[in-house]
Amino acid sequence: MTETPLRDRGKVGGPRPRWLPARLAGLRSETGTARTMTFDVPEWPGHQAGQHVDLRLTAADGYSTERSYSIAAPAEDARVSITVQEVGTGEVSPYLVENMELGDALEMRGPIGGWFVWSPSPEAPVEQPILLVAGGSGVVPLMAMVRERARSGSRAPFRLVYSVRDPGQVLFAPELAQHAQDEGVQVDLVYSRETPKDFARPAGRITARDLATPPDAGWPDDPPPRAYVCGPTAFVEHAIRTLLDLGYTNHNIRAERFGPSGG
């Protein structure tokens, strides 16, 4: 493994991530098994696109459990949005997706993660092209990056390749269609099991052809693109191998894996 240059790493330090009181203030259904939950966190210090939070739920008898969830949107006042995919056998996600109601409280620690982050570089003569590779609900932190690009007015070339099992699993579909109209943003869906009717690409897992920069993308030769990959561990490993075959290096791939046992 090669050493990452110091300048490519975010500095350590900053405010100590503490457990903060959070109250559910907004709900939006995304699919039959996923919903976006917006929390009021009065002491929230702000965050970068790609970071996550730890949530802690404590039962009346004192039993408590923690889970990590990616933040779905740029910081807006003291509000933090996450999008939770229900894991049937999970201990926490069924509560979050089905039971938690507006006004209910939990504890939130964050933001966490200074590695899997993107922020605009308005001072750069040419902004680095960004390839986002999402598997299932791994799209959530990448969606935060797409939203941050729009919020900040960045002109960085963006391409999202989003792999889902079937059309019913697509998170943020209307908003993604909208962002795909933005100049410099391309969104490509890949269906692994079942496609919509008349969809050109047959169902199947992501290939080099899906991830190769399209010739008409107009990406600069320099700087080379950076890839952010997020999804279940097996998906991430496969995507990284494919990207390495395409000429990406360990220096310009950043990954975040979540386990099947998430819940």
Binding site: G10, S68, G110, I112, G114
Partner: peptide, 19 residues
């Protein structure tokens, strides 16, 4: 991966150690 472990490690270090 370590992204998921960063939270518990903040308890001892007092800051995010992801990088």
């Amino acid at each position: 991966d370590g992204n998921a472990a960063a939270g518990p490690f903040t308890d001892v270090f007092g800051f995010d150690v992801s990088t």
